[in-house]
Design a protein around this nucleic acid. Structure first.
Lengths: 250, 250
DNA sequence: TTATATCTTTTATAAGACAAAAGACGGAAC
DNA sequence: GTTCCGTCTTTTGTCTTATAAAAGATATAA
């Protein structure tokens, strides 16, 4: 390890990086390698300090950054835990849809189709695959309360989700990302969304119970796992009569 | 000041707050009071440490949080500066609109109307005013490159923007928030946006050169200044044929 | 005049000492 | 036997001190 600047003598380290950032990379690597499972506690700050031969404060600063990135969750007196999609309070939500008025309703995912195909140029580009690589295409409806609000088309790299099928989707009680995490070990860390207004047509109009040509919110999402690797591309049509997309600019 | 826990003896301090958070509040107060102007450097960490009689590290932690909230900007070796809308790289952008392809185009604001009125129930609620309080209503077009992309209706509390007029808007070269900051001392810190897809109608359709009934992205925004005080309500119609709303979920 | 050290001021990093929070455990009270 | 309450241990959180790196300004030498 590059233990500069304090102990450096001859090697000015061409790619200098402060100690806490090196520690962060090491912890990240362990996380990525699955040394600690989602929801588990990682070793205490002082244990890690001994293991890496640095002070507790330095480990702390590394963990600080990872907590800010929602990779870890701290709880005073208890420990530091690997963030998980199975715990809604611990992992941030990706769904930004809220009702125009009233309380947040329980959401329910209704899988419609799930099949295998080969990546076309667009999907390949979005997922960083070769054109023709095996992919999974899934369609589903998202209901909030009794109302069908979102129609999603979801594209996944086939290699990472070997046995994913309509049956498995139907049997799962969990959220999609929770399933991906627990069954396939694929953890969604961050995502980028691109929003447009489009006219409803075909299946989407029908499933969402809106007129052909009426306005829908189109949300395209690329979700990334560790190392900024894209592992999901999704196109969602949102009916925004009773709900809206909420965003905080901070 | 509540200097616990280190120096506390008798007073367990019913509303305990760590030292660095108290320091943060003090710095915030100075900022709010205008002790340092946007773009100016604030005193160095060691100066502030002397002033508040704490260590540099404690001041540092206070400033860390404020930098994370985009209130201050640090530059190693130079100092810490008050964020300003006049410096695009220093202050975060509120405009999330990017071209579907190609480079980010220069944007130009075209003011259409600016008049005074009394707050109706909705505006009053959004801006935290009494119904009937004086407000300013402004309409404008936002062009990206040559194309008219956004039609905005903007509502402001009349009290804070005394002499704002169409003339002033027309003469200003700056962005709207830069003008608000430099001329009226009102700094937008954060904002909440609510997005929907709607059908184009009337003036909006005409100005944005789209068919009546074609889909538009409706973006409603409440912008806040210090102390979470709402000071702008805005309703924007976005034409999303060549542009989209970009959002990062982190 | 131009390049190059050197000094000063600033933020950034690292380590160490100690406090607060949360539970676990064990003994006293009932 | 069960409940309550202190005490001990383990964990994250706070605060200070010392020192390094970054950026300019200033002086110096070619």
């Amino acid at each position: 390890m590059n233990r500069s600047p304090h102990s450096r003598a001859a090697a000015p380290s061409p790619t200098f990086s402060p100690l806490y950032r090196q520690i962060k990379d090491l912890i990240l690597k362990s996380l990525e390698a699955g040394e600690w499972q989602p929801g588990d506690a990682i070793p205490s700050e002082s244990e890690l300090a001994v293991r890496f031969n640095v002070s507790q404060g330095t480990v702390r600063k590394a963990i600080d950054e990872m907590a800010a990135e929602n990779l870890l969750v701290r709880r005073q007196g208890k420990g530091t835990f690997v963030a998980t999609h199975s715990d809604p309070r611990s992992f941030f939500r990706f769904l930004r849809l809220v009702p125009n008025e009233g309380e947040l309703l329980p959401s329910k995912s209704v899988p419609l189709e799930c099949g295998r195909a080969r990546a076309g140029a667009d999907v390949a580009r979005m997922l960083g695959l070769e054109p023709g690589a095996p992919i999974i295409i899934m369609r589903r409806l998202l209901k909030l309360g009794e109302e069908a609000v979102v129609f999603d088309e979801i594209y996944l790299p086939g290699e990472l989700f070997q046995d994913l099928s309509l049956d498995i989707l139907r049997q799962s009680e969990k959220s999609l990302y929770d399933l991906f995490e627990s069954r396939y070990g694929v953890r969604m860390i961050r995502a980028e969304e691109r929003l447009r207004a489009v006219a409803a047509e075909g299946v989407a109009a029908e499933l969402l119970h809106v007129e052909e040509g009426s306005p829908l919110l189109l949300v395209e999402r690329v979700a990334f796992t560790y190392g900024n690797k894209p592992v999901e591309w999704r196109r969602g049509f949102y009916a925004t009569r009773d709900f809206h997309y909420f965003n905080e600019l901070a």
